[in-house]
Nucleic acid binder design. Sequence first.
DNA 1: CCTGTAGGTAAGTGTCCACTTACGGTAAGT
DNA 2: ACTTACCGTAAGTGGACACTTACCTACAGG
Lengths: 122, 122
Amino acid sequence: MDTYLQAGLDALGDATRMAIFQKLAAGPLAVNQLASTLPVTRPAVSQHLKVLKEAGLVTDNRAGTRRLYRLNPEGVARLRAHFDQMWTQAMSAFQAAAETPESPVKVKGESHATDRRRSRRS
Amino acid sequence: MDTYLQAGLDALGDATRMAIFQKLAAGPLAVNQLASTLPVTRPAVSQHLKVLKEAGLVTDNRAGTRRLYRLNPEGVARLRAHFDQMWTQAMSAFQAAAETPESPVKVKGESHATDRRRSRRS
DNA sequence: CCTGTAGGTAAGTGTCCACTTACGGTAAGT
DNA sequence: ACTTACCGTAAGTGGACACTTACCTACAGG
């Protein structure tokens, strides 16, 4: 898999983080400014910003007692590139399928076990 | 916010669902075929496919006793369009910021309460 | 009709994570 | 120095949700 893509999806997967991302798209904002327009408390916003920062999607700099957060162009561009790659890869399947008129997909035996046990993940 | 975008992010936010999506990008697959290459059981795959289907990202059709799942071009294209819109919107902020040399952002009083209580969400 | 394969669904459980409150720490104003 | 605004972090909790097992239905072959 693509770890960058997964990290980006994990960062934007949460609705609140997504909302923060969208608000920062309009311009730099302080933590209180973000929290005042969101249905969560300020510490929650701080934690979300930490995640977004670790994902390379935002940067911060001090402005007096406040701390202004803004989107990180490089991180956003890189994540977008990974997404674009995924879309094109997903779309290429249709073109390939459209050119071949019919593929029977005749896999007969292949996995005859019903409800096999599996290992837990991590 | 954008409900479509959020639905798509919710659908692809999970790592397993993302893996299923990626595998389906290579071509149509049955449930057992997916489950055999994933670290989860078949029912789990079925549930993920249900979510992806409700999000309009995949379609299914019967093939004998099996059921073949494939990506839905329209749903994928629509989700991609929403993503593209988000990226460009996010990028437009930098251009606007680059053209204006300095904006003081002098918001003085605006929210003077510290750690205000808020309502839970849903 | 019976057996075996394929898959959807119900019900239950464990874990993660998005929140909260509480606290400490820095910068500006008086 | 004292106060006040702003912010990050620690610690703890509740709920969602990604899993599991168990059960039932549908199709194909003998």
